[in-house]
Simulated assay, not measured.
Amino acid sequence: MILSIQFMTMLAMVLGGFYLGIALDTFRRASPHWKNSLFLIYFMEIGFWFSQTLLLFYILYRVNAGELRFYVFVAVLLGFAVYQALAAAAYKKLLEHLIQFTLSVYHFLAKLINMLLITPIIFIFTLLFSAIAYTIQVLFIVLLTISKVLLAPFKFIILLIYNFLPESIKNYFYKIAGFYSTMKNICKKWLKYITSKRR
């Protein structure tokens, strides 16, 4: 391996180690979100280290065709140590500021969408439902009034016929009406009893 390629390999691996420190701190900052699941802890840890190993090897492959030497591991550790010594504290503060900024933007957008989109849609649907319910109520009252008007002559004729009926037939109708009223009251009492028991 020529000297220039070795130098490029060293530089790439130092930068790779520096990046690995950034990626590890970012991963550790996000890890509390899955700390309650043992499966997710193992899955995320294995996935993180596997993906970072593949990435570093890909960088190495692009620089020197994937030739592993002892100094490659030393360079990665050196880059990681440089990050921990010089940039870890600053990056963690920057990461927290970025997270807070992202959350602030998210909450602002959520409130804006709720105010400009969701709330008007709910208001329109509520208004539409109220209008439909009111229209149905008005139509029901109109139909009920029309039916009363149309049935009024028949009611008058039935009452007129009823007045000319013999007393025995009238008494029969009285008995039927009394039986119907009794059954209606019994059903109401049973329904009230069942309702009170359920409560």
Rank of each mutant, 00 (worst) to 15 (best):
150 L>I: 06
71 Y>D: 08
179 F>W: 07
98 L>F: 15
126 T>A: 12
39 F>P: 00
45 E>P: 01
123 F>L: 13
185 N>R: 09
112 L>G: 07
50 F>S: 11
146 I>T: 00
106 Y>C: 08
152 A>G: 05
92 K>F: 06
81 A>E: 03
34 W>R: 01
3 L>T: 15
16 G>R: 01
57 F>V: 08
84 Q>T: 09
58 Y>A: 14
40 L>W: 02
152 A>R: 11
181 S>V: 10
184 K>R: 14
115 M>P: 02
149 V>L: 11
34 W>L: 00
126 T>P: 00
148 K>S: 13
114 N>H: 09
151 L>E: 05
177 A>Q: 04
123 F>K: 15
83 Y>R: 03
135 T>D: 07
161 I>H: 07
101 F>A: 11
32 P>Q: 00
168 S>R: 13
74 V>S: 05
134 Y>D: 09
198 R>S: 10
50 F>E: 01
24 L>R: 14
193 Y>T: 10
123 F>M: 12
79 G>C: 03
152 A>H: 13
163 N>L: 15
13 M>F: 04
51 S>H: 04
47 G>K: 00
105 V>C: 03
195 T>V: 09
106 Y>V: 12
1 M>P: 09
185 N>I: 12
88 A>C: 11
122 I>T: 05
158 I>Y: 11
51 S>E: 02
198 R>N: 11
17 G>E: 02
125 F>G: 05
124 I>L: 14
75 A>R: 02
165 L>K: 08
97 H>I: 11
8 M>F: 15
77 L>A: 15
174 Y>H: 13
184 K>A: 13
50 F>M: 10
114 N>Y: 08
181 S>Y: 08
139 L>H: 10
156 F>V: 08
90 A>M: 06
18 F>T: 03
145 T>Y: 07
27 F>A: 06
123 F>P: 01
6 Q>W: 05
59 I>M: 06
104 S>W: 14
76 V>W: 05
127 L>C: 05
87 A>W: 02
14 V>C: 03
144 L>A: 12
53 T>A: 14
15 L>W: 02
172 Y>T: 12
18 F>V: 01
79 G>S: 02
194 I>Q: 11
74 V>W: 04
118 I>W: 08
117 L>I: 14
50 F>D: 00
53 T>R: 04
159 L>Q: 11
168 S>Q: 13
35 K>N: 02
120 P>F: 06
196 S>A: 14
72 V>D: 02
197 K>V: 15
36 N>H: 10
62 R>N: 09
51 S>R: 05
153 P>Q: 04
32 P>K: 02
120 P>K: 04
87 A>I: 03
74 V>F: 11
53 T>M: 10
17 G>F: 04
66 G>W: 07
72 V>P: 03
183 M>D: 07
145 T>L: 10
65 A>C: 05
15 L>I: 08
16 G>H: 01
120 P>D: 04
106 Y>A: 15
16 G>N: 00
123 F>N: 12
75 A>M: 06
48 F>W: 01
14 V>M: 09
72 V>R: 01
147 S>P: 01
138 V>H: 04
29 R>D: 06
112 L>F: 13
68 L>T: 12
